[in-house]
Each structure stands twice: as structure tokens, then as C-alpha cells.
Simulated scan of single mutants.
Amino acid sequence: MPRRFTDAKDLLDDLLDRFEAGAASPIAHPDYAAFPSVIDADAFLKRIREAEAAGAVSLGWGRRGKRDQLAHVRLASPEALYQYLGRTPAPQIAQDAVARLVGGSALHDFLKTGAAQIAAVWGRGKTWHGFASSDVDTLRHAFDLAQAILDNKHLDVDYKTFSRRTVKHSKTLERVEGVVVRLLSGVLEFPPGARPREALRAIGLERFAPPLLIAGKVDLLGADLAGATPLYLGIAPKEADRVRFREPPAYVLTIENFASFNRHVAEADPSRLGATLYVGGYPSLATQQALRTISAMVCEQTPIFHWSDIDPDGTWIFHTIERAVGRPILPHLMSVEIAERSGQAPTKKSAPARCPPNSGIASLAAYLAEDGSKILEQEELDPILPTPRRRSD
């Protein structure tokens, strides 16, 4: 649909906007039906003719009985129109903004590339994920936070303290966490479907680590729990080295979902034959470290299992735990057969975890990457005891 205007400056600005967006020779039209009066139409034409006299635009006129009526305005010289309007070109604005964005910062090469991409978007007069070139100060904070994470300054620091130490304000990270994750997504591996807060938690940046829940025949160093029969214990992840097994567990099972964790402990293993741990969805870095500590307490012959949803996020959680414990683990109630039998088509397709062929979840990840694969939430399944023979189940 033709672009029509009653304000000459709006029309001229629109020509430059579209030129900056990539149009080689944009055209706009006067909207004769919308002019309030003949006086307004004459003022419009006068301004357009001034731009023509400056060499900025060329004019097209009507035919036959409308030969004296302006039909369209075409951009002739962007440079001349910038000068006529006193407007700074978007590429120059972008260049100046990006210079402020990265100036004085020792940035990772990937962040430098990201800044160049932002400059290219701003140079076309567009916004980058809702951020205009005028938002450079806010984005500078996001870059500083991203670089601090790459420098591992976020480890062992809570969310707000990290923000305050890095950009002098405790709430800034909350405002730009989505941008920070976007900037880092090409360098660090984040859960494919995680919200920004969950993604940052997975690399060790959280308000405070949630408790690690563990069920089994366990004691804590300095506390004899043999006479107590709690359903499970909750400890700070950093206290995982205090865990002691009263007898070797038959298995170790980590579970993503809280309801499935409770059902497994109460229904599948009321005798506490194994050690069952709740990882809290996407396992935080503190939780990953705790799992590494506890897995080292059991012998190599003790099988370690993980139970998640049968979906791309579930494969990411499985592979994350697999890497954290540093030894092979087995999927529990996570298989192609179960997906085909009980699953349903996903509402949207997302990529499963990138894992090596020898990963315990490799076959399921390959299946989920195929067209026609099905997914299943783990709550749909009743808990059962894991056994090594159930590797494919």
C-alpha cells in the first residue's frame, strides 16, 4: 500500500527511514484527501519543493487532468536530504553509540562480534531486541555483566551482590538478564527452553542456592539420624560433603520434578534401598557440584540414574548431570519406547542436548531431533525402582 502523508517532514523522514532500512530509492505520496485545508496542502508542497531544490528528492506529477498535481516524492540524494533536514545518519549514530558501548572495556571476542552486529542493526535505523541506539547506557551494563560472567566473577556470589559489584547497582541484572543471556548464548551452553533467570542459575549465578533434597539411609557428619525416619533431608548444596551413607545404596537416582521425587520416595522406595535426590529442575551450579561430591561417595558398581521429562530440556538436564558427576549415568523412565507408547507431539520444536554418542541419553536425544518425535512429562508415569537392566526403559 502506498505511503501517504499530509506532513512534509514526516514524508521526508520516512524516505530516510526506509533508505536506512535498505530501500534503494523509496517513494512516498501526498494524501490529498486528508489535508485539512488548501493552505495546509500549499505549505506541504512548498516544503517538498524546497527539498527538491536542495537536490534531495525528485518529484513525480500526475497525468492528463492532474498534471499540475504532485503524485509522488522519490528520494534522490540521501546525503542532501540528511543535510536539508539537519538529521544525523543512522549509521553514524550507531557508530557513535557502539563506541560508547564498548569503549574502555576489555571484551571477549564474541562480545565484540555481538557489538558489531548491534551496530549493523542500529545502522539500519532498527532496534536490537527492543533496544535503540539511545539505550546504549543500559546495554553497556549488560555487556559489562556478560564479561564479568566470562571472567568467572559471578561464582560464589549471590545475584544482587554480583550486580552491585559489577555495575554499581543491585537491581540492574534483573532488568537486563535476558540481554545478558542472549549475549552469552554463543559462548556458554544454556538450557534450550530456560527462562533467563534459570539459564543464569545453571551457570552458578543465583540469589542463593536452593536446598538439596536427599532421601535414603543417610546421616550427616556430626549428626546421627539413625533414630529418625524423615521422608527426606534438605541441606545446603555446599554441605554435601557432610553426607554419610549408613550402608551402600543400591542405586543413586536424581529426579527433575518435585512431585515425581516425592512419589518415588514414598511409593517406589519406602525402604530407602537407594539414594534419591531432587535436582530442582535445571540443576544450579551448586547442585551440580553437590552431585559430583555425593557420586564420589558410592562405588563404581553403584548405578546412577536420572529421571526427567522426555523432551529436549530433559536431555539437557540429563547431560548436565552426566558431565557434573563425571561418570556414566543411565536414563530412568526416559526412552524412545516410552515416548512412542505414551507421548504426544510437541506444540513447538526445540533442539535436544548436544551430547556425544557414548552419552546415556544419546539415543533419546537423536530421536527427539527427528520429525514426528513425541514428548512426555514425567508426572504422567508412575514411579518404579530403577535397575541397570532398564537402561532402554
Rank of each mutant, 00 (worst) to 15 (best):
Gly204His: 06
Leu183Val: 02
His108Asn: 12
Arg74Met: 12
Tyr251Phe: 14
Gly326Phe: 13
Val325His: 02
Thr302Trp: 11
Gln344Ala: 15
Val57Gly: 07
Arg244Thr: 04
Lys153Arg: 15
Ala194Asp: 01
Phe110Cys: 04
Val176Lys: 00
Val243Glu: 00
Ile214Trp: 02
Ala34Glu: 13
Phe258Cys: 02
Gly372Cys: 09
Gly280Pro: 04
Phe208Trp: 08
Gly227Asn: 10
Trp128Phe: 11
Pro249Glu: 01
Ala116Met: 06
Leu205Asn: 05
Ser308Gln: 10
Arg87Lys: 13
Met334Leu: 06
Gln83Glu: 12
Ala324Phe: 00
His129Pro: 02
Ser37Ala: 13
Lys217Asn: 11
Asp309Trp: 07
Ala115Tyr: 04
Thr6Trp: 01
Thr88Cys: 14
Leu188Cys: 03
Pro386Tyr: 03
Val180Phe: 03
Glu52Ala: 14
Ser271Phe: 08
Trp61Pro: 05
Arg242Lys: 15
Thr229Gln: 13
Ile93Cys: 11
Pro248Tyr: 05
Leu231Val: 15
Glu20His: 13
Leu364Tyr: 06
Leu225Tyr: 07
His154Pro: 11
Gly234Lys: 07
Arg164Gly: 09
Gln289Gly: 06
Ser359Gln: 08
Lys9Phe: 13
His72Ala: 14
Pro357Gly: 07
Lys9Leu: 15
Glu380Phe: 11
Ala266Gln: 12
Asp313Tyr: 06
Pro26Phe: 04
Ala116Pro: 05
Leu205His: 03
Leu75Gln: 08
Ala24Cys: 07
Tyr84Gly: 10
Pro312Ser: 04
Asn152Arg: 15
Ala240Tyr: 00
Glu380His: 11
Arg327Cys: 05
Gly104Arg: 01
Ser342Pro: 04
His264Asn: 12
Phe245Thr: 08
His169Gln: 15
Ala365Met: 12
Leu85Pro: 13
Glu239Trp: 12
Ala339Arg: 01
